[in-house]
């Protein structure tokens, strides 16, 4: 009772990375709260899936294995989770801010009338005093997220409703094995007893899933472009530089919105979070929406026309100049010096 739960997402028969990242975070929250960490996995053909979760410190793994839970649709998942949560009364429930979590999370929170904070960038435990009501709270989950287009950072709490629910994007938390020999127990959910015919009204007719072609998350060097790059043609220069350096190309939301780069290259609050060895920011002004997703890079080189661009405040090297002029020079002098 009153434990920390992670609602896990199953991706091609394996636990999705974002869920494992949340298990790591969930473990540290559970330690702080001196409670258990429980995982919840729903799908079909899940035999042995618990072995993937134990090393992340799972004390209990609830598994609902039923063909009606794969492929994912909203209603049967919601029914099983709501049923379990009414019995288990978790104090915290975390899920990935993927299309899965952002479809499922609000549905579950609405059914339980509990609060849900989307796209948190940090989760902490702390107290709260409600002076108006004369109430004090201990050990609340601080759900920290940028809001208002990234211009403010808000700390959200759910003082009275449980579970305190939050979604977190992939790459925001760090995935770490807690104890390779950790052992918990499995609770098999009786899915058949829960599902009703009206849960099964939405049918998946067809599904085309592709493996992601772009792998910016695991690239040690990223050449990234913003709106200031100016055109899709100028973006080709970034691809050239990336090719030469063995890097991957990323983009800001503004550049993606402008059609300069594909969505899967988007870095920042509404894209992926990266921590490369070197991040070359080209024509990126440095709005928090973007920097939230790259500021932990070991080294940042910013190329911008504006010497006062906010990105320069977090950069190690700030080159004031035109992307179209500077990038070819980087290529040229890199080649010259490595010959």
């Amino acid at each position: 009772m009153n434990n920390v739960f992670v609602i896990c997402e199953v991706d091609e028969g394996k636990i999705a990375d974002v869920s494992l990242e949340l298990m790591t975070k969930g473990r540290s929250l559970a330690n702080q709260l001196k409670c258990k960490l429980e995982a919840l996995v729903l799908g079909h053909n899940l035999k042995g899936i618990e072995k993937e979760l134990y090393p992340y410190g799972a004390d209990v793994i609830h598994i609902g294995d039923d063909e009606r839970l794969d492929p994912y649709t909203t209603l049967p998942h919601t029914s099983v989770i709501v049923d379990l949560f009414k019995k288990e009364e978790p104090q915290i429930a975390l899920l990935g801010a993927s299309t899965f979590g952002r479809d499922l999370g609000p549905r579950v929170s609405s059914a339980l009338q509990s609060g849900l904070t989307a796209d948190c960038t940090s989760l902490e435990i702390g107290p709260h005093e409600d002076k108006k009501a004369g109430k004090t709270y201990e050990n609340l989950l601080y759900q920290i997220r940028p809001a208002f287009g990234g211009n403010i950072v808000a700390t959200i709490i759910n003082p009275d409703c449980r579970p305190q629910m939050a979604t977190v994007r992939e790459g925001v938390m760090k995935k770490e094995i807690f104890d390779a020999t950790y052992k918990g127990k499995v609770n098999k959910i009786d899915v058949d007893a829960i599902l009703k015919p009206e849960d099964l009204v939405v049918k998946v007719i067809e599904r085309h899933m592709e493996k992601s072609k772009v792998n910016i998350k695991n690239s040690s060097i990223i050449v990234s472009g913003g709106y200031g790059v100016g055109s899709k043609e100028n973006f080709d220069l970034l691809f050239e530089l990336a090719e030469v350096l063995g890097a991957e190309v990323g983009a800001s939301r503004a550049a993606v919105d402008a059609g300069f780069a594909e969505h899967e290259r988007q870095i920042g609050q509404t894209g992926v979070t990266v921590r490369p060895k070197l991040y070359i920011a080209c024509g990126i002004s440095g709005q928090i929406q973007h920097t939230a997703g790259m500021e932990e890079s070991s080294m940042i080189i910013a190329i911008n026309n504006d010497p006062n661009a906010p990105i320069n405040k977090i950069a190690d090297y700030a080159i004031t100049g035109d992307v179209g002029e500077v990038v070819p020079k980087l290529i040229k002098f890199y080649k010259q010096n490595t010959k």
Binding site: Q113, S114, G115, L116, T117, H128, Y142, Q143, P146, G150, N151, I152, V153, A154, T155, I156, I157, N158, P159, D160, C161, G286, I288, T291, A302, P310, N312, K313, I314, A315, D316, Y317, A318
Partner: peptide, 18 residues
């Protein structure tokens, strides 16, 4: 159910760029 506990305006931490 959710309350805003705190709002911070985003301020960049200055570090010395070359």
């Amino acid at each position: 159910p959710t309350k805003v506990k705190k709002i911070e305006n985003v301020v960049f931490q200055a570090k010395e760029a070359k």
